[in-house]
Design a protein around this nucleic acid. Structure first.
Lengths: 199, 199
DNA sequence: TCAAATTTTGAACAGTGTTCAATATCTTTG
DNA sequence: CAAAGATATTGAACACTGTTCAAAATTTGA
C-alpha cells in the first residue's frame, strides 16, 4: 500500500507542473525561476528539489503536454479541409500559428539548449515528429494521388520541416519579416512551393 | 582637439570588444558575463558600464565582425567552383560550416532575443542578408541561364534562407540529425532540391 | 498519545547584473 | 612645478538567480 504516498506525491508534482505551464504560456521561458514556480504552486522554493532534480526537468515535462495541445489545435483548425494538399497546408499554417501564439513554447521546443543528455533524445524526437504526425496522412494521400516515390515524399516532407522551423526562428527571434501579414504570405508561399514542386 | 580623448576611448572600447569576441568564439554566449569580459579586457566590471550600456550592446557589436569573417570564409572555400549552381551550393555549405564551427555565433545571430528595439532592425538585416550577399551573383547567373523570372528566383532564394536557418537550428539546438554526416547529407539534399526544382 | 518517519522550509553560499559614491589618475592652469 | 579641476577607474552594495542542508513542522504508525 505505497499507492497512497505515490498519489499524493504525484498530486504535488502536478501543482509544480501546472505552475510551470502557466508561467511558460504567459511570461515565457525567461520568467521561469525556482522561486517563481514555487510561489505559484504554493510551496517554498526548496520543496521543488524534493520532487524534481531542478527547474529544467520541470520545464521539459511540459513539452509533452504542449505537443498534445498543439496537435489538437492544428487538427481542429484544419478539420474542414479535404485530405491532401489543402489539409496539409491548413494544418501546417495552424502549426505555425500555435507557436506564434505562445512564443515561450517555441523557445522551449526549438531554442533552449538541453543539458541533460538523457532527456535530450526524447525531447528532440517529440519536437521533430510533431509536424510529421500532423501531416503524415496527407503526404500519403498526395503520394498516392501524384504517384510519387517514397524518397521524393521524404525529401519534400523534410524540406517542409526545415523551412517551417526557419520561418518560426526568423520571425520570433529576429522579427523577420517585420509584419504578421508578411510572415503569413512568406509561409504560404513556401508551403505551396514545397508541396507543388514538380521534379 | 577632442580627438585625443576619442581615440583613447575607442581603444578601450576595442579591448572590451576583443575580449567579448574571444569569449563568444571559445566558450559561447552562455559564458559572456560582465565580470568575465572585464577580466579579459584588464578592467573592472564597473568600467564596462562607462563605455557600453550593458553586455548585450557589447555582444551585438561583434555581429558585424563575425558577419565579415563568415563571408570571407565562405567565399574562400567556394572560390574554385564555377559561377552558378555549383558555386551556390559550395558557398551555402561553407556558410553552414561556419556556424557549426562557432555555435556561440549561431546563437548570437539566430537565437538571442534582442531587447533594444533600436538595434534590432540593424542586426536582423545583417543576419538575414548574409546568405543573400553570398549567393546573389550565383542566383543572377542561374536566372539568366535558366530564363527564370525574378519572382521565381526570389521564391527559391527565400526557401534556401528559410531551410538553412531551420537546418542550423535543429542541428545546433536539438542535435537533429544525430550525426554530422547525416546533417551534411540533409543539407546537401535540401540545397539541391531548392536550386534544381522545376516549377 | 507519543515517538518515528517524512515533508517542508529558510538560512546560507556562490553566482549573476547594475548603480553609485569614493578613489585614483590624468589635465590644465596659476 | 604644484595645486586645482576634470575624468577614468573601481569596489562596495543591492537585488536577483540556483542550489544545498540542517532545522522545524507535519504526518504517520504503534
Amino acid at each position: 500500500m505505497t499507492s497512497k504516498k505515490e498519489i499524493q506525491e504525484q498530486r504535488v508534482r502536478g501543482y509544480f507542473i501546472a505552475a510551470t505551464k502557466e508561467i511558460l504560456k504567459s511570461e515565457g521561458l525567461k520568467s521561469v525561476s525556482v522561486r517563481n514556480i514555487a510561489d505559484r504552486a504554493g510551496y517554498s522554493f526548496a520543496s521543488l528539489y524534493n520532487y524534481f532534480k531542478d527547474a529544467k526537468e520541470l520545464v521539459f515535462l511540459c513539452v509533452k503536454d504542449f505537443r498534445e495541445e498543439c496537435i489538437a489545435y492544428a487538427q481542429e483548425k484544419a478539420a474542414s479541409k479535404p485530405a491532401g494538399a489543402k489539409h496539409l497546408k491548413a494544418v501546417t499554417l495552424a502549426y505555425l500559428e500555435y507557436f506564434i501564439q505562445y512564443p515561450g513554447i517555441h523557445d522551449l521546443f526549438f531554442n533552449e539548449k538541453l543539458s541533460d543528455i538523457g532527456h535530450t533524445g526524447d525531447t528532440t524526437s517529440l519536437v521533430v515528429s510533431l509536424l510529421e504526425t500532423l501531416s503524415e496522412s496527407d503526404w500519403q494521400h498526395i503520394a498516392k494521388h501524384e504517384k510519387l516515390s517514397g524518397k521524393e515524399v521524404g525529401h519534400r516532407q523534410s524540406a517542409l520541416l526545415l523551412g517551417t522551423t526557419g520561418i518560426l526562428s526568423l520571425y520570433l527571434n529576429r522579427r523577420y519579416p517585420a509584419t504578421y501579414e508578411a510572415f503569413l504570405k512568406q509561409a504560404g508561399n513556401f508551403i505551396d512551393q514545397q508541396i507543388n514542386q514538380a521534379k
